[in-house]
Design a protein around this nucleic acid. Structure first.
Length: 525
RNA sequence: GGCGCCGUAGCCAAGCGGUAAGGCAGUGGAUUGCAAAUCCACCAUCCCCGGUUCGAUCCCGGGCGGCGCCUCCA
């Protein structure tokens, strides 16, 4: 099965064919760097990082660009609030963004172009649009004239007439059409400004993506990504500018990811109102509805924790897994409970890695797994039952990913693979004392290598989890060694009450003690 | 008002024409001094009503319910 992707442009799944054979040009709308990133800002990067991994695995040479918007109204406002400069604020927040990407394992971005470093390219593009009659200057501003673009609205599937009816498009007499949008904005005193043929000003919101994508990737790209919320107006406008300027189709596939949603408490209040039967005053209803909406908008909600705060209490790997456990186009309900449930479900994998270590003396994390589909782990010969099952699972995994990057389905297969390997270990009593058949152990390594190969594609299980311990490690280790030695003595003498008391008391302290055939294991819970 | 999305077990979540993957939780069994972990087994007819079809969770129509965008929020 060839790779198929869903494009917003056609509202359907299409076979994936690149502009240039074997090469993929991918652009993702990046952040406006005016405040610390929250979880929602990680959704796109994690998804498209995974997309890139999968495309590379499938044999493509991928170039991925994510822009950094470092000039914008929000930046100007916030810099003023914080008594700093736009430059300083942008620099600080860009670093925050980079740190978070690294933490959550997004390392496939090839270029991070800055808007302020591409003013010239933007002005060139605006100039061409004006020359070609798609744009007009007006009192220092320059506007794109939507009616000049015959297929304007094709991405979000709306027409100019539709947009005018019943919308709140800002009334502006001076514009030729209310839907016309700014390519260039004349600056007010004190605002960041660049010289232009139309006077000092700064770029409009959409032009930077058009200009930078064209500069780095060329006028025709393969994949354009972004959050669903950006589809209109941002992507629609970006598309209009780019295609009007170049006369070529801008992006072959538009991929929009679903948004992160906070389960809103306010919504429940509103719902109860209506269920109780007494009609709340219209005003209250409006307030409840608004509060509800606010609660659902992570970006808008002031309480949304920064990702850094989140990483402090949740493993970044858990968050990444959480984001990939559902299809990228679906909205995800963010709640501490949901994240915790994901963390819980990952425990079994870490257990398996430990078991593997015990059985073979090898570290799962340092296994070298094949990086391409062509060279995928060999599963020929014996044991036919295990290898046969793994082959089937691999097929299902790749089938899921080939179907519009269905990471949710792929994650499910990973769980089944875990079960198959655990089952194999149990069947051959590999985790028990005694000599083991080398061939049987080698087969396990082959299976684990496949697991590594496939989990690499999701960007998970790449590195051991950081230890939970604090600075008192040496002391705790020493004390634990002593306590467990005393407990071992008690057990030897079949003094179960003492042994169990030690284990139970430690458990209350969040230290889990397990008696294994080959010795005792303890862990901070 | 316009453009869309969604409704699968207690929760999360694949499947989208041939009688429902997986995970968490739960239940029974194996193992264990007892636990933990692990293994084995069990655990849903897919919001409702019509239609198309030999056959629908999956297609079409109509409801009901939830949600997003149209506001420089990723």
């Amino acid at each position: 099965m060839p790779l198929r992707v869903y494009s917003t442009l056609t509202r359907s799944k299409e076979e994936f064919r690149t502009v240039e054979p074997g090469k993929v040009k991918m652009y993702l709308c990046g952040p406006t760097v005016y405040k610390p990133a929250h979880i929602g800002h990680m959704v796109g990067p994690v998804i498209f990082d995974t997309v890139k991994r999968y495309l590379a695995y499938s044999g493509y040479q991928v170039t991925w660009v994510v822009n950094i918007t470092d000039v914008d109204d929000k930046l100007i406002v916030r810099a003023k609030e914080n008594n700093t400069t736009v430059e300083a604020l942008a620099k600080q927040m860009t670093q925050d963004y980079f740190d978070n990407l690294a933490t959550i394992g997004v390392d496939g971005v090839d270029h991070f172009p800055y808007a302020t470093a591409h003013i010239k390219e933007m002005l060139d593009m605006i100039g061409r649009l004006v020359e070609q009659g798609y744009a007009y200057p007006l009192n220092g501003d320059v506007y794109f004239e939507v009616t000049k673009d015959a297929d304007y609205g094709k991405l979000s599937h709306r027409s100019v007439e539709q947009m005018l009816a019943g919308t709140r498009v800002e009334a502006n007499d001076r514009k030729r059409n209310p839907a016309d949008f700014a390519l260039w904005k004349a600056s007010k005193p004190g605002e960041p400004a660049w010289d232009s043929p139309w006077g000092p000003g700064r770029p409009g919101w959409h032009i930077e993506c058009s200009a930078m994508a064209a500069k780095i990737l060329g006028p025709e790209i393969d994949i354009h990504g972004g959050g669903l919320d950006l589809m209109f107006p941002h992507h629609e406008n970006e598309l209009a500018q780019s295609e009007s300027c170049s006369g070529k189709p801008f992006a072959r596939y538009w991929l929009h990811n679903g948004l992160m949603q906070a389960s809103g408490q306010a919504g429940k209040v509103g719902g109860q109102h209506s269920r109780h039967g007494d009609t709340p005053p219209a005003g209250d209803h409006m307030v409840a509805a608004q509060a509800d909406q606010e609660a659902n908008k992570l970006a808008g909600s002031k309480g949304a924790a920064s990702v850094k705060e989140l990483f402090a209490v949740q493993q970044p790997e858990t968050i990444r897994f959480f984001l990939l456990s559902t299809h990228y186009r679906s909205p995800i309900d963010f709640s501490p409970e949901n994240i915790a449930a994901t963390g819980q479900s990952l425990e079994g994998f870490y257990r398996l890695f430990e078991t593997y270590q015990r059985v073979t003396g090898k570290d799962f994390y340092t296994l070298t797994a094949p990086g391409t589909r062509e060279k995928s782990t060999k599963l020929d010969g014996e044991p036919a039952d295990l290898f046969g099952e793994l082959r089937a699972l691999r097929d299902r995994y790749l089938e899921a990913m080939d179907d519009d990057f269905n990471t949710g389905g792929a994650v499910g297969v990973l769980f089944e693979m875990r079960k198959a390997l655990n089952s194999y270990i149990a069947k051959h009593k590999l985790d028990a004392a005694g000599a083991k058949e080398p061939a049987v152990v080698d087969a396990l390594t082959t299976g684990m290598t496949l697991l590594k190969e496939l989990s690499n594609l999701l960007g998970v299980f790449r590195k051991p989890l950081p230890k939970k311990a604090g600075a008192d490690d040496a002391i705790v280790d020493g004390l634990m060694a002593l306590i467990l030695e005393l407990r071992a003595d008690a057990r030897k003498n079949k003094n179960w009450p003492v042994a169990d008391k030690i284990r139970d008391t430690l458990k209350a302290l969040k230290i889990v003690v397990e008696d294994r055939p080959d010795g005792v294991r303890w862990n901070r819970g």
